[in-house]
Structure formats: structure tokens, C-alpha cells
Design a binder for these strands. Structure first.
Length: 248
DNA sequence: ATTCTTACA
DNA sequence: TGTAAGGA
């Protein structure tokens, strides 16, 4: 708690913990002031509002990636700083160090998924970029390493730099709403998977339909049909729901 | 002399 | 986590 508060202070007014105004002439690392810059151990610690010892402690627990080593000195960058801020924020939200460590591990594993998300063609679904803290807020108590790994496995979540990216605003909102109402996130994701399978089948149907008629009707592209397909599927879904409800 | 690690409390 | 001691 003390740590997190100091970080909060540092972020807010730019002054970190114990009055470190000793005239060594070292520059303060300000919020987003110098991206791409590298930090020495002490600089990093000061920028994050924690002690050098704590940084080392986190590193021993695998909470932050190893620094770049240049002979004797360890160089840290913005990623490390961002990670430290994230750790502090998650700690403040009641996460345990152990839990954060596992989260970090799952986070590292999904690093390469970012490309999968980035190179998306035209889609109406807008990706949502959010920090680990924001994610923890949206799914209070459900942000476990297991769930995080599963979400990445399913392709809902990826990472971009130090941010997390959800592939779809609407899916994110829907799942967050369900979780807020008490549905376990795992259940939501499993249901989502099954729905996706059917959606894939529908998409395949649309594609083959397009191909079948492409010869005679060149203006019949998938993108032309997208809004039509959407309204057809939505209408059929409504009707299907009606049938189930009325007969039950 | 400085920066970082190891070891102990 | 603080701190003292020691390697490079």
C-alpha cells in the first residue's frame, strides 16, 4: 500500500517518496517524458517510486523481464517502468505479488499474439486497447492467469507493447456485463467459443454463396453482402429464440 | 569511485 | 525489504 501510494503521488505531482532532492543533478523521469530512453537501476526505481531493493525483489520473482546487460551495469527501459507501474496499480487493487507474477507470466506468453490482431483486414469490430489495470477493473476478481491465458488462447486478447488489446469492443462489453452480473468469466468464454464455431460456419456459408454467384454477378462481393448477412442472421436468431420461448 | 549483487537481519 | 560487505 505504501508503495502504491508513493507511485500514485509520483505520477500525480512528479515527486517520489523520500525527498530525494540531493543535488546529484540527476534528471527526473517524467510521465512519458522520454520514451525510448534507458534507465539505470536507481533511475528506474526513482521513476517508479520504489526502492532499488524492491526492483531487485520483483526481478527475482520474475515480475519484470531481465534488463539488458552491458558488462556490469543493467539497463532498463520504458517497458520495465510501465511494468512497475502496473505492478503497483495491481497491488493497490488487492492483487497478491504471487498472483501478479503468474499474471506477468501469462502476459509474456501472449506477446506474439499481437501481430495476429494487428494485421486485421476490414472489420466492423473495433479493437479495444486497455491497460492491465483497466482489464482488472472490468472483470473484477476474474482476471486470473488461467483466464488470461484462455482469453489469449481463444484469441479474444492479445498484447501490444505494454497494453492489452481486446479484438472487439462489443464482445468486451458483453462479456464484462455478464461477469458483472455474476457469470463466471470461464463460462462466458466457453459459451463464446461455441457461438464462434457457429459463426464460423455461417461465415463459410456466406463465402461459398458469394463464390457460387460471383461468375454471373461480379458485383457480388463479400463486403457487399456483409450488412445483408448480418441482418439475415440477426433476424433468424430472433425468430429462433421466439420459437424456443413459445414452445417451452 | 561507481554500480550492482550477495548475504544476512 | 533495509543494509552492510564485496566483486568488477
Amino acid at each position: 500500500m505504501g508503495v502504491a501510494e508513493e507511485v500514485a503521488d509520483a505520477v500525480t505531482d512528479g515527486t517520489a517518496g523520500t525527498g530525494g532532492t540531493s543535488g546529484s543533478g540527476a534528471e527526473d523521469a517524467r510521465e512519458g517524458g522520454t520514451p525510448g530512453r534507458e534507465y539505470r537501476m536507481e533511475e528506474l526505481a526513482r521513476a517508479a517510486g520504489i526502492t532499488v531493493r524492491t526492483v531487485r525483489f520483483y526481478r527475482e520473482r520474475g515480475l519484470i523481464p531481465p534488463p539488458r546487460r552491458e558488462g556490469r551495469i543493467a539497463w532498463y527501459d520504458d517497458h520495465h517502468l510501465a511494468r512497475l507501474r502496473t505492478i503497483a496499480a495491481l497491488l493497490e487493487r488487492g492483487h497478491t505479488l504471487q498472483g501478479i507474477a503468474e499474471l506477468a507470466e501469462a502476459f509474456e506468453k501472449g506477446r506474439d499474439v499481437a501481430e495476429l490482431l494487428g494485421i486485421d483486414g476490414p472489420s466492423e469490430e473495433t479493437p479495444v486497447r486497455l491497460t492491465p489495470e483497466e482489464l482488472a477493473d472490468r472483470f473484477a476478481g476474474e482476471v486470473t492467469p488461467e483466464n488470461l491465458a484462455a482469453a489469449m488462447e481463444f484469441g479474444y486478447l492479445g498484447t501490444d507493447g505494454d497494453d492489452i488489446v481486446h479484438i472487439s469492443r462489443r464482445l468486451l462489453d458483453a462479456s464484462a456485463t455478464l461477469v458483472r452480473k455474476g457469470v463466471p468469466l470461464v463460462a462466458v468464454m466457453e459459451a463464446g467459443q461455441r457461438i464462434r464455431e457457429h459463426a464460423d460456419a455461417l461465415a463459410e456459408l456466406l463465402l461459398s454463396f458469394t463464390l457460387e454467384h460471383a461468375a454471373e454477378h461480379p458485383e457480388l462481393t463479400v463486403e457487399e453482402l456483409r450488412p445483408l448477412a448480418k441482418s439475415v442472421v440477426e433476424a433468424e436468431l430472433s425468430l429462433a429464440l421466439d420459437r424456443r420461448l413459445h414452445q417451452a
